[in-house]
Design a protein around this nucleic acid. Structure first.
Lengths: 150, 150
DNA sequence: TCTTGACCTTACCATCATGGGAAGGACTAT
DNA sequence: ATAGTCCTTCCCATGATGGTAAGGTCAAGA
């Protein structure tokens, strides 16, 4: 199976497969004499594993750990569960942060009459510049880059 | 006020102030004869406005619109409210996506006995590689870069 | 057998918000 | 005057991803 087929089969782009190989997340694929990467069903399964973990929001760092456990026949399910619970925790925290942003915005929007007059509590609030600390700012920067589109 | 003081007063790093100036989000600051940027209270207020909008998760693109409305004496509050509601919508969607990831993970973790045996439904599920479509993957990539730390 | 088109390879560039650092100039307090 | 802190610009890096360009390979059909 060449990289294009492996990409289709795993749901990842060929670009990303090469990227993961470059970063060492996956081992370097075997090559044909002409230099084409070749993939076995086992390797495609690993790629699917990675994509699925990404779908569940695991950071690449943690995926490395998950992969190690996946390959380890003598692993303990407790180790995997711990990683999953950590991930759940992280998601929970981020959800709460976003919820808090949303609540604030909703509150401001409720207070804004939304007509043709220039008075607007939303702008007034923004002008005040109340801090919400670095955690939320760290999150929002990522949301922005996502929403900004490419 | 020089850039360091403006940074402290606005809660932004000097780096970011220069960056925003470079990208045109804010107008180029006046300079002293020796080249130091100088900021008035008005400009600091604008910087605070930007940071606050970022705290609320607005993408930089939208902040540009908000800034224009902020400066526009004859704006209509409806315009501002529309932007806020759009932002609320976007946040809501992302929260739901993350919630769905979390639910799936929680489900898997619940099914995992978490002991010293190697059997683990979490790994089994990951191996199956069920797709959740591109929307969630787009979101998770951002979460990962955030969680990965720098 | 030759051609064509689809695929592969590497390498480089861009994104976006942000930080780090270097090299050199400016200001401030002792 | 000297030290130390600030400023300036410029370059580099991040992380996941896409794009593109130049060139090699392969499979199918004429």
């Amino acid at each position: 199976m060449n990289i294009g087929e492996a990409a289709t089969a795993s749901g990842m782009s060929a670009k990303m497969i090469r990227y993961y190989e470059g970063t060492g997340l996956i081992p370097a694929a075997d090559r044909t004499t002409s230099g084409y990467r070749i993939y076995s069903e086992t390797e495609v399964q690993m790629l699917r594993f990675i994509r699925r973990a990404r779908d569940l929001g695991f950071p690449v760092e943690k995926i490395e750990d998950l992969l190690a456990l996946w390959r380890d026949r003598s692993r303990q399910s407790a180790d995997v569960k711990r990683l999953a619970l950590e991930q759940i925790d992280g998601l929970q925290r981020r959800i709460q942060e976003m919820q808090s942003m949303m609540d604030t915005l909703q509150h401001l929007a409720d207070a804004c009459c939304g007509d043709n007059r220039p008075d607007c509590p939303i702008l007034t609030d923004l002008g005040k510049g109340i801090s919400q600390g670095p955690l939320i700012r760290e999150l929002t920067s990522k949301l922005q880059s996502r929403a900004g589109g490419r």
